[in-house]
Design a protein around this nucleic acid. Structure first.
Lengths: 157, 157
DNA sequence: ATCCATGCAAATCATTTGCACTTAA
DNA sequence: TTAAGTGCAAATGATTTGCATGGAT
């Protein structure tokens, strides 16, 4: 991690531990490693991918701990689960007051790009209103596309 | 089934059997029951729900047959799979030249409503173009909402 | 000291597959 | 006749849970 990120990371981790403490939960080495790995990778990641990364630092960490920690992150607003069309749940870091965003997914390389468009949101809000007395809870927009450029430039690292 | 539906149903079934025949596949009693049940229910249905319905007509039909038949329906353009956020794949009847549509899902009763809005599509097309040289393959929009009316009127039957 | 967290393995849930048997063409 | 279809049960893959042990407060 670069210097600039480390500052954010320790603040972020501190916030996480505060929330846990408020809930009567504990700080552990595993949670720290998983948390820092998750935020330093900073992309839509699957449990397998995250576990593999975590094990380069802490080799004996089990699947269950990663699942349990991700669930904690979600419950406390540090991550969001994403269910794309490939049967793997992926997790998306969520900054404190970051707002919901949508996705463009390359079907070749699985690269995920984010967007957030007010025109679309406004129109969808109108559509919901037209349906009647509904309270919109969540909005999910996924665009699946293929890079037309030969040899897709966005290969996963 | 009402009379009007029966006519469509037999035409539809005939088309299905034609496609199967072209692919060197066979017509069977199970496929007929599953097909007709699927189209007469005509809603976003899970495998469990469909199997339960099918078994009221043909009690000994197995899970595997329903899964295999739904896969056939998808491959031949008679159904579309939907992956909502509850871990169950649901299937959506697809009429011959029906176009893609989007969904508003009640998080209480799981009722699914459909919509299809040109303003949204146009704007999303623009967003993809702004990202660069992408070829849009599929678009998925899901709105999750709660009926604000006390005692949601859209309970599944 | 207490209660939460961990790691492992076993359990679960949705879906798929292998196989001996049945059936449409 | 013969390739494809079926039903069952076992296999798979993702995720969850039970439990004995370890660790944070």
């Amino acid at each position: 991690m670069a210097e600039g990120e480390s500052v954010d990371m320790s603040k972020l981790l501190e916030r996480f531990y505060e929330r846990l403490s408020e809930a009567g939960l504990k700080s552990t080495r595993q949670r720290e490693v998983i948390f820092e790995t998750f935020f330093s990778l900073n992309r839509h990641i699957s449990v397998d991918e995250l576990l593999a990364e975590v094990r380069t630092t802490a080799p004996h960490v089990g699947y269950a701990t990663v699942y349990r920690t991700l669930k904690l992150l979600v419950e406390h607003g540090f991550a969001r689960p994403r269910h794309f069309d490939d049967g793997q749940t992926r997790y998306d870091p969520q900054d404190e007051d970051e707002h919901e965003h949508d996705h463009l997914i390359c079907i070749d390389c699985r690269r995920v790009m984010e967007f957030d468009d007010e025109v679309v949101h406004a129109r969808l809000g109108q559509i919901v209103r037209d349906f009647g007395d509904y309270d919109l809870t969540r909005r999910k927009i996924e665009l699946y596309a293929r890079c037309r450029i030969q040899d897709c430039p966005h290969r996963p690292q």
